[in-house]
Design a protein around this nucleic acid. Structure first.
Lengths: 159, 159
DNA sequence: AGTTTTGATGCAACATTGTAGCATTTGAAA
DNA sequence: TTTCAAATGCTACAATGTTGCATCAAAACT
């Protein structure tokens, strides 16, 4: 349940902690699906694919439709509550946007496909662009092998 | 298997100019499809999607199969003749690897989806990674609006 | 609390992008 | 020329999103 606005003087850009508050602050309807999606993303140690979010919802006992999930994620990105990452492979990864404009790089393991956040590696380069271009954001993705996989002499697939 | 070094004194890492030479230097068979794909990539002003390469082949009068094209591109990436870029959207983009290890950033227009090379913006950051991680390469993709699109007040889709 | 409005959902159907298996063709080595 | 693995071209299928539309329900309004 969203807290009555009267008793919660929280500006829309305040990094609200609860899913409900986040949704309400952006003028959306607080539904079970959206709440569960946000909580799944907030609780994740790394950016989640659409499919991983789906599994999280199922685990939480929230019935959901594939399309609804896509739309919930799309809405979150649109409201800048979450962001998409095109790390590699064909599926998007989603991640909650934490306070402010702090953008960090990501690491994609070319062996297992896992993606993780490199919180201390900034992704905010603002190089000079050709005339007429406008820069919105920069996405830095590092590729290689993660610790779990190691690179045991196997040639990595250039995926 | 690699071509017999005896008859072709061209080291595999030599920046051969012709498609045929490139292919042969990597021990591949020189087929019309591969030659045409390489020439399409070499002649392109920006990284091409699988589909764009297909159009180029058709324009060049080279009949081809969708799957063959995927496999030709896969082979080029495997041989490090070309590289894949996950700029955004769901389709890969392909680009010829020019001499040496020079890696540059790319710009993705969130309005028209076009991707272009930023030859003077390097993409070679080598930040410290957690223990056990191995870095292979870094991919820097800038997002925004290109000059053609401009950002005419329209909200960009966060694609 | 009941009604209304419209945003959100669920379903079916479709689109795009990429892979796998296998019979056939063909580049180039012998 | 002959030979044979490498490439190709099907067909089928898998994975990931998207569109349209009828239905449901969150929350605003009596």
């Amino acid at each position: 349940m969203p807290a009555p606005a009267s008793s919660s003087p929280v500006p829309a850009d305040f990094p609200a902690t609860t899913a409900s508050a986040l949704i309400a602050a952006h003028g959306g309807r607080v539904t079970r699906t959206r709440v569960a999606v946000i909580e799944a993303l907030q609780g994740a140690a790394h950016p989640l694919s659409h499919d991983e979010v789906g599994v999280a919802l199922t685990d939480a006992g929230i019935a959901h439709d594939r399309v609804t999930l896509y739309r919930a994620l799309e809405w979150l990105v649109d409201k800048d509550i979450a962001q998409r990452i095109a790390a590699s492979e064909r599926a998007w990864r989603f991640e909650i946007r934490r306070g402010g404009e702090h953008r960090h790089a990501h690491f994609h393991c070319d062996r297992c496909g896992q993606v993780l956040c490199l919180e201390d590696v900034p992704s905010d380069s603002k190089p000079a662009l050709p005339a007429g271009f406008e820069l919105d954001r920069s996405e830095l993705v590092l590729h290689g092998a993660c610790a779990d996989c190691g690179r045991r002499g196997l040639k990595m697939e250039a995926r």
